[in-house]
């Protein structure tokens, strides 16, 4: 479980994360939803230590991740996988090298063991015969799958995804959502996903947190999401005609 306690973050005096607290449960998909610019990505990057927080704490299974030296953070980071919004694959490496990279840097596996792990991860995300291609030779959806394969290569306990299906067509987005769901349940991972895609929220969100202007405004699940009377959340969800119809508005 990941626990975030009252974290705040400001840039140039502007508060972008204000006393944000939450618990992200193990073996579940924990979604952070909110408008663009609401602070979702900052929240995740603060949790990962990519931004130094102004106050508060982040705990990975009760292990403090903020007030420890950098070399101790490294041990926790080995247990974290991350899928970035733009995939963030190393463009000068082949797909095989991309997935092998965390293994080379953080494990004592032999080359053969690493290669078989790469094949396992690629099979798990339904990609075949791409080992020797470069990221630029793959479609956006395939790059996302490679990013997921790289993220799970070290058997992470925690998986973070920043807008995993942004820029993808609806059917590919559903494939990615389902893949993340399967991986989370199969490997009992604590998964935290940032999204503003309501389809994802309805499909895969076990726990959902809604952020508005850097503050946690609401939390619940996909069943309670549509029944909420929170004004900001309603404005966010029912801004599209489909969801308005679902709610019986207009």
């Amino acid at each position: 479980m990941i626990e975030v306690k009252s974290i705040s973050k400001s840039f140039d005096g502007k508060k972008v994360l204000d006393n944000f607290s939450s618990k992200f449960e193990t073996g579940k998909i924990n979604l952070i939803i909110g408008k663009s610019g609401s602070g979702k990505t900052i929240a995740v990057k603060c949790m990962l230590g990519l931004f130094e927080i102004d106050s508060g704490g982040v705990f990975f299974d009760n292990r403090d991740f903020v007030n420890i030296p950098e070399y101790e953070k490294k041990d926790i980071r080995k247990e974290i996988g991350m899928v970035f919004q733009g995939s963030a694959l190393f463009d000068y490496m082949t797909i095989e090298d991309n997935i092998m990279f965390p293994l080379k840097m953080s494990s004592n596996m032999t080359l053969n063991e690493m290669k078989s792990r790469v094949d396992f991860c690629l099979n798990r995300v339904d990609l075949k015969n791409v080992n020797h291609l470069f990221p630029s030779q793959l479609s956006g959806g395939m790059q996302k799958r490679v990013a997921i394969a790289r993220a799970i290569s070290l058997n992470p306990k925690y998986l973070f995804c920043d807008e995993p299906n942004s820029g993808l067509d609806p059917s590919t987005a559903t494939v990615i959502d389902n893949l993340l769901k399967e991986i989370t349940y199969e490997f009992n991972i604590t998964t935290v996903i940032n999204t503003h895609d309501m389809n994802s929220a309805m499909e895969i969100g076990d726990n959902i947190i809604f952020i508005q202007e850097g503050r946690k405004e609401w939390d619940g699940n996909s069943e309670t999401l549509l029944q909420t009377d929170n004004k900001y959340l309603n404005d966010f969800i029912f801004s599209s005609r489909i969801f308005k119809k679902l709610k019986g508005l207009n």
């Binding site: 953070k73 963030a88 694959l89």
Partner: peptide, 14 residues
Amino acid sequence: VTEQIDALEVMGIN
């Protein structure tokens, strides 16, 4: 800008 440096940091690499 393509977050490749962030990806390295998340992996625990300096």
